[in-house]
């Protein structure tokens, strides 16, 4: 299953980004292949609706779980509708690698 973690930079040792809609990068981890890839969030500087566009992107990518600091109300209802699990985690000192290790 694919998991997305919002990230401040595109390396495994970059810190966890609390923002979802305006998070800098996304780490997409596939639990079947064990591989992670990073993509830039193109909606980070959008005027408005960043949360909804990002949620749509998650659906496009076929993601099952999203880990972030919080989600706006519209993003929440979109992700609920598509049955994508949301996980809210507040520690932004943790790196992406540490989070992935915790989940394993």
């Amino acid at each position: 299953m694919k998991t997305v973690i919002t990230s401040k930079e595109q390396k495994l040792d970059s810190k966890f980004d609390l923002r979802f809609g305006r998070g800098a990068y996304f780490c997409i981890h596939d639990s079947e292949t064990g591989k992670s890839e990073f993509i830039k969030n193109e909606y980070a500087d959008a005027q408005g609706g960043a949360g909804t566009k990002t949620a749509e992107k998650m659906v496009e990518l076929g993601v099952g779980k999203v880990i972030s600091g919080d989600f706006g109300p519209k993003a929440k209802s979109l992700l609920n509708e598509f049955k994508i699990q949301m996980v809210i985690f507040q520690d932004d000192e943790k790196t992406i690698k540490e989070i992935l290790d915790m989940m394993a």
Partner: peptide, 17 residues
């Protein structure tokens, strides 16, 4: 202290993190 949803109600029996 992580908060999470359980979309299909049945699958999750432990904290995802």
């Amino acid at each position: 202290q992580t908060r999470f949803t359980i979309p299909e109600k049945l699958k999750q029996t432990a904290c995802p993190l």
